[in-house]
């Protein structure tokens, strides 16, 4: 397996970004981390800084004020980083599509700074915790495919050392 994606195989560190959500999605994410669903048994854990994150969990519509900050957060993460859009809002702005203070869709905002970003979508309003676990599993499968498709890194040829 490609080492680049291998790093995303186990123990995902997730960072949660609320980009103008209604809190339902957010409490469902926290629900995942607490004993009822307990994703920590898979090694998934919430971290306090985007710089430690393998996955950005984005909820909400991405309001105009958040747009720039969201891009900034994405740039701060270590790549490759999977962006998970959680909930109808993050997918396609859901019920708030026509409101005046929402910016572009979350995936557009991320693609603006990184056209090759890996983005996963979890539909639902709010998605059930089971659906989110399912999404993680599916993302892992997808990453496997991506890793298979990517050319194997070739070890760089060692430079000739004179006199050896």
């Amino acid at each position: 397996m490609n080492w680049k994606f291998w790093s995303l195989k186990k123990s995902l560190f997730v960072y949660h970004v609320n980009a103008g959500a209604c809190n339902n999605c957010d409490i469902e994410i926290l629900e995942l981390l607490t004993p009822a669903y307990d994703v920590e048994r898979f090694g998934i854990i919430l971290v306090g800084s985007p710089r430690h994150a393998d996955v950005l969990l984005v909820t909400g519509v991405c309001t105009r004020q958040v747009k720039k900050r969201l891009q900034e957060l994405y740039l701060q993460t270590a790549k490759p980083c999977v962006v998970m859009c959680i909930g109808a809002c993050a997918l396609a702005q859901g019920i708030f599509a026509e409101a005046y203070h929402v910016g572009p869709c979350v995936d557009e905002v991320i693609r603006e700074v990184d056209p090759n970003a890996i983005i996963a979508y979890v539909p639902g309003c709010p998605p059930k915790p089971e659906a989110m676990i399912m999404a993680v599993v599916k993302t892992w499968q997808k990453l496997d495919e991506l890793a298979a498709a990517e050319p194997k890194p070739v070890a760089p040829a060692l430079p000739e050392v004179a006199g050896a």
């Binding site: 103008g20 519509v61 309001t63 004020q65 019920i95 708030f96 005046y100 929402v102």
Partner: peptide, 21 residues
């Protein structure tokens, strides 16, 4: 402002029965 979506204005474009949602 980070969470301001403009619901008050949006709500005047929904019918009375849609607003609860």
């Amino acid at each position: 402002s980070y969470n301001h979506r403009g619901i008050e204005e949006l709500s005047t474009r929904k019918t009375f029965d849609q607003v609860p949602y």
